[in-house]
């Protein structure tokens, strides 16, 4: 299974890539602004955000709570229309959820269909797209194998632990074969040990598939451990506080990577930035709109 997935990787790069990787970013956010209109007046959630993700990049977005992370992610996914500015996925401006994009939500318990088995959950988006049965079976098998859930296809999601449910959501996302994978604080609600496993799982899947990952988190350690790049967001109304390259070795593991002096340094740096972001007085920053 793993082998087949790896064989898929150069394929996606040569197909989409060679020319494109130098010119068209996998994901491009330009002058994005989101203002919520509420009865109590306008709330500026995202002020001005501009950043690009190159194809195959793993980028973490980290910011203080209430930094408009969820708003931003919904705009990128095409679930929410920005007030101004654009989001492009593979060069195409996003007006509705793009076909080449998948999302893993934080609330795993609410993003899987409780009336469907694990397998049906993973299969549904493919069935809906009209992928033929044989191909579907193959993709679902591979995805479940990749997240280590090949043994529970007939269970219902609610019969599984939180960590396993999130694995199902990840399997569904990768079976969908996206070019860009958005993850919205996916491990915020699972326990620490499960979380470490899932982090490694995501890194592994990312490497195997060669997809572009945008991983939103409020956990500084997690962002540094996972990302090739960390974008630190400011307080709401959000701007980019810092765009930081993570120059840790590509092979990461929980024990060694986290005890590298460089890891500590980067972590400290991001922490400082977040503290500064929190303290910075931002005029017109009224209500936090993160949970809208």
């Amino acid at each position: 299974m793993v082998l087949r997935l790896e064989r898929g990787r150069p394929l996606t790069i040569t197909q989409e890539g060679t020319a494109a990787s130098h010119q068209v970013p996998a994901l491009s956010v330009k002058d994005l602004k989101k203002v919520y209109q509420t009865p109590g007046g306008d709330v500026e959630a995202v002020r001005n955000l501009t950043f690009d993700l190159a194809p195959g990049e793993f980028v973490c977005l980290v910011g203080p709570s209430g930094a408009g992370k969820t708003t931003l992610l919904k705009c990128i996914a095409g679930l929410l229309a920005p007030t101004s500015g654009t989001v492009s996925v593979e060069g195409k401006v996003v007006t509705e959820p793009p076909k080449s994009l998948a999302v893993v939500f934080q609330e795993y318990g609410r993003s899987l269909f409780p009336w469907m088995s694990v397998r049906d959950n993973v299969e549904l988006p493919l069935k809906n797209q009209g992928v033929d049965k044989a191909k579907r079976d193959q993709l679902v098998d591979e995805a479940l194998e990749a997240v280590g859930l090949a043994h529970v296809p007939k269970s219902y999601p609610w019969q599984l632990s939180g960590g396993m449910q999130q694995r199902v959501a990840i399997a569904r996302a990768i079976a969908y074969q996206p070019q860009v994978l958005l993850m919205d604080e996916p491990f915020a609600a699972v326990d620490a040990q499960t979380r470490a496993d899932l982090e490694d799982l995501v890194r592994r899947v990312w490497k195997q598939l060669g997809i572009t990952v945008l991983f939103v988190t409020h956990d500084i350690d997690e962002s540094v451990y996972l990302g090739e790049r960390v974008i630190v967001l400011s307080n709401s109304p959000t701007v980019v506080q810092e765009d930081l390259k993570i120059d840790l070795p590509a092979e990461r593991d929980q024990l060694n990577t986290r005890s590298l002096p460089r890891f500590t340094e980067l972590r400290g740096h991001v922490y400082e930035q977040i503290q500064r972001a929190k303290a910075a007085s931002r005029p017109a920053a009224s209500v936090t709109a993160d949970n809208k």
């Binding site: 679930l79 609410r110 269909f113």
Partner: peptide
């Protein structure tokens, strides 16, 4: 709402959205 967003992300719309 999250399930509804999930449907939109995976482009499950129209009749399929009602059915599934």
């Amino acid at each position: 709402e999250v399930l509804s967003d999930t449907c939109r992300v995976y482009r499950i719309s129209g009749f399929a959205r009602f059915r599934y």
